[in-house]
Each structure stands twice: as C-alpha cells, then as structure tokens.
Amino acid sequence: MYPAGSRVQLEYMEPDPYSKLKPGDMGTVQMIDDAGGLHISWDCGGSLALIYKVDRCNCLMKREQMDALFNHLFIMPFENCEKMKSWIEKKLRPAFPAMSFDNGTKGKLEVSLNVNAFEMKSLKIGIEYQTDEKGHLFIKKCGWIQDAPAKDKINKAQKTKR
C-alpha cells in the first residue's frame, strides 16, 4: 500500500512531545519495518516512523501513478506550453507542493519536484516537445532527469513516442 518512494500526507499521529509533525505534513516513504511501521522522510525535516494501526497517512502518489502520467502526456492534446504546464501542475502539485518549472530552452521543459521520491534524489522530469505552425504541442520524450551529467540527459526510465 505504501511502497518505498511513495509520497504521503500525514492524517493523524498519536501525540508525541518530541515531534512537531502535524496533519497535512508531507513526506516520502523510506521503508516499512517488520512491525509494519512506516518510516518516512518528512519534507519539514527529519524522519519518523508512523506506528501501524495507530497513526494514519494518505498515499498521494506511487511510482506507478507517475509512470501512468508520463504515458498520458503522449496522448494529451496541448494547445500550448502554458496549457501543458497547467495540466502537469494540476496532477503533481498535490503531491509535490514545492515543484517548479524551467523552460529556458525552446522545445524543452524541466519540472523540478524539489524532493526525493520514488527512490531517486533531486527528482526532476524532462520533457522534450515540438510545436506545429499553430503552436500545438507534440511530446517527443519525457522521463526522469539525472543531475550528475552536465548534458541533462533523460535516464533509462525515459519514455519516447514511437
């Protein structure tokens, strides 16, 4: 139900004098221990496990949902870049409230999610597109961007329209 890397939002936690977590705080699942404790790295800082059958959280996004979003991008008709950004924001902002866009290069859009998730660090999505004479967008590639290479290559998890 909560695979490692999933984005979650705290619903309820037993009162803990040492924790400043509150309902609505978001984090990324690190692991589930043998007792069913859900170990989470919280966006507000630190990590703390939720106790099975005591604390509650809501799963906002799993890796499979993100993969489905990538696939959906190829079939969605977008009138322009702003409409595409609006659609992406509607889908991702609930799970990644600190996300930001960088479309400095023509035909490329980078989406920084500004958290670690899906067992990757410094999560970014790269989208390559082309436009027709009317400005309509056609997605050529989209996938995870690796920070390490200076060339901003889209990694092995990339999706390419055939």
Rank of each mutant, 00 (worst) to 15 (best):
S112M: 06
N155E: 07
E128H: 14
W87G: 06
K108A: 05
I145V: 15
G135V: 12
S112W: 03
K153V: 10
F138C: 06
L92E: 08
D152I: 13
Q130T: 10
C142E: 05
K90R: 15
N155C: 12
I127S: 06
F118H: 01
Q146H: 08
S112V: 01
A98I: 07
F101Q: 02
F101V: 02
L109W: 04
S100K: 14
P149S: 04
Y129P: 01
S100C: 13
K108R: 11
M99Y: 00
S86I: 07
L123T: 01
N155R: 09
W144C: 15
K134R: 05
I145Q: 04
N103H: 14
A98Y: 07
A95Y: 01
E110Y: 11
G135I: 08
P149M: 11
D102T: 09
C142F: 05
V115R: 10
S86T: 11
D132S: 09
F118L: 03
K91E: 10
N155Y: 06
L113M: 02
K108L: 09
D132P: 13
V115W: 02
A95P: 01
A148I: 11
L137S: 10
Y129I: 00
N114E: 03
T131F: 06
L123E: 03
E110N: 08
D132W: 00
I145E: 03
L109N: 04
M120P: 00
G135R: 07
A148K: 08
N155D: 15
D152N: 13
T105Q: 13
P94Y: 00
I145M: 10
N114G: 02
G107P: 03
Q146C: 13
L123Q: 01
K134M: 04
M120S: 07
K124Q: 15
S122H: 07
T131G: 04
S86M: 14
I125Y: 02
D147P: 06
G104E: 05
N155K: 08
P97I: 12
L113N: 00
A150F: 15
W87L: 14
I125S: 11
Y129L: 01
F96A: 01
A150R: 09
Y129H: 02
G135C: 13
D152Y: 07
P149I: 03
L137Q: 06
A150D: 15
S122I: 05
W87H: 11
T105W: 10
S122D: 06
D132E: 10
G143L: 10
K151W: 11
I125M: 05
K106E: 11
L109F: 04
K91F: 06
K91V: 15
E89Q: 09
K141C: 07
D102A: 14
I139A: 02
A98K: 12
P97M: 08
F138I: 14
K153W: 08
Q146K: 10
E110C: 08
T105F: 11
G126Q: 01
P94F: 03
A117T: 04
S112P: 05
S122C: 05
I88P: 02
